[in-house]
Design a protein around this nucleic acid. Structure first.
Lengths: 337, 337
DNA sequence: GTGAAAGCGCTAACAA
DNA sequence: TTGTTAGCGCTTTCAC
């Protein structure tokens, strides 16, 4: 009478129909050649007839393995992460795994953290884009699965990490501007507080060092903090700057998305790009190839980042603790030649 | 000797330290007031001291519940899905659930389907953006969890669905163009084959009916099929059209992303927008507010779609089988007033 | 108010 | 070559 325990067909059902043990069914379905071909065929037939599908939850509880890699990102609608995720997913699909994406942001940071991090134990490994998460937080969570940090700056801790060379990238971009006629460069989305250790801060450091290395004066008023990460933040900040009468002849935006908002604000105010104002973004997203003018940008080499992450996952111990991926500068139409 | 079964702290460990049963621990941790306050406190202390985190896999196997909703989308770097996912995630976070995103596309469609759909059983419900999945496929998968279809056209089958009113949206957009000076409108990303039943086809239907209803002649040569879904596809198609000398005075693009590529191609060829050529896209993505000129678009009301999906998940049976969300037209700068 | 026991569906040892 | 057994870590009756 318990042929249908709930609604789904279980492995036990298949075993019963095929007249074999559950172990035999499990073996055949997982490609372990433990039984005679005739038995295997009988099992396969029974499974198909019943419409059996393995319960991944039970499989994981028993075997400890999933074929899923979690990727935790701060926002779901950011082109940079979308493109990076695509690279990761392509590689993982090819090796029979799959990528699963979750958002870490949302309303309150830490409230989510507690509940959400627990859920990450469902994955074989987790790629975590660190923003507000501090090392002590991570340790206190008692992470038992491989965790790869995708970050801005080397963080002390026991987890391997792939870090983008933010400072060098920003340095190159700003140096290019300074050596191509710019004297007053807005750092759009920069950071004034020296205690922060995030992407914003790292890129501002590069902005500063570029001025220093080329003996250009640096105006703190040109380092503009942003309240958001979307194009509207860049648009609003540039509009405010123009309205205030602050002169500038270039914009280095913390991300391409922000740069796109900035370019719109410049166009609305009647400035030409790159004639009146040059613009460089960061991330080299695809959208930048279709803006008017096409956006020059710091290319973080997402495909290399993805590869480095997967390598780190593949070789848990032997790999170096922190891999830094260098950036290059992609010049398009928003900067002077 | 089996105090540490593996590496993680289990509920049994907490029970032992607190000197209570596993049931008591489980109850307290799940907020079920079954024990005395003093006992509860002891359990909480023990859990914190040991750094206990519940194993979600085991919880699910036993209780059948996750707090995760799966969202399966065709590509990871499409703004429309990113924005829709953000709406869904915002709502779900607020009610203690979380959204998990996976890609259905990738290399081969059906090969993935088999392995991947099985994994979806890990979720309480799955929101599936249907593209190449046919109804028979779905049924054969023996889905045992609530499945919401997010689609273009009502599909026969047992699953509730939220459908975008593609045809009406396209009809409105094209009618606007036809009544504002356009006579030769390119349907960029249209479909010639009448047997398809996808988004492409639905929007082309609206394009056709708009011509018909307003007594405008329709040129099949202006219905251009695309090989991709990114801006490069729109860019390439428009460039080809211009090179071929095909005259046109408006473009209705199947998505905003394609429209953005088209606008770039028009600019490169020296056409003004909307003076020489008007452009309307579909999806009303945020990026459209920052293009030059700002992009007019069919607004599918993603927040309403998200709400409808969640309503359908919340009330499994009582809800209507298929909900259609109407679209509106958002006019910006890429069309004539 | 609390504990004991019975599994959820599966896999990995060990027996046969 | 195959079947039996013992759990993975948790929730949930049911007894006390």
């Amino acid at each position: 009478m318990n042929r249908r325990p709930r609604t789904a067909v279980t492995l036990a059902d298949v075993a019963e129909v095929a007249g074999v043990s559950k172990a035999a069914v499990s073996g055949v379905l997982n490609g372990k050649p433990r039984v005679a071909p005739s038995t295997a065929q009988r099992i396969l037939d029974a499974a198909r007839t019943l419409g059996y599908h393995a319960n991944p939850t039970a499989q994981q509880l028993r075997s400890g393995r999933t074929n899923a890699i979690g990727f935790v990102i701060p926002e779901l609608n950011r082109p940079y992460f979308g493109e990076l995720a695509t690279h990761l997913a392509n590689q993982l699909d090819a090796q029979g795994q799959h990528l699963v994406i979750q958002r870490s942001g949302g309303s309150k940071e830490h409230e989510l953290a507690a509940a959400q991090f627990a859920q990450l134990r469902r994955y074989d490994a987790v790629i975590l884009s660190v923003l507000g998460v501090d090392p002590p937080d991570l340790e206190s969570l008692g992470f038992s699965i491989p965790l790869i940090l995708l970050g801005e700056k080397s963080m002390p801790g026991a987890h391997p990490q792939v870090i983008m060379d933010n400072e060098a990238g920003a340095h190159n971009a700003v140096t290019h501007l300074l050596t191509h006629g710019a004297t007053r460069i807005v750092m759009l989305g920069g950071s004034h507080s020296p205690d922060r250790n995030d992407m914003t801060r790292r890129r501002t450091d590069g902005y500063r060092s570029a001025h220093c290395d080329t003996n250009h004066p640096l105006n703190e008023e040109l380092i503009v903090e942003l309240t958001g990460v979307g194009p509207e933040a860049g648009y609003h900040a540039i509009t405010t700057l123009i309205d205030a009468g602050t002169p500038f002849d270039a914009v280095f935006a913390v991300t391409d998305v922000v740069a796109i908002g900035a370019m719109r604000a410049l166009a609305d105010a009647g400035f030409t790009i790159p004639g009146d104002v040059q613009v460089i973004g960061f991330d080299d997203i695809t959208d930048g190839c279709y803006t008017i003018p096409r956006l020059s940008s710091v290319n973080p080499h997402k495909e290399r980042i993805a590869q480095a992450v997967l390598d780190l996952i593949a070789e848990p111990e032997t790999a170096p603790q922190a891999v830094t991926i260098p950036t290059t500068l992609t010049l398009r139409e928003s900067t002077q030649r």
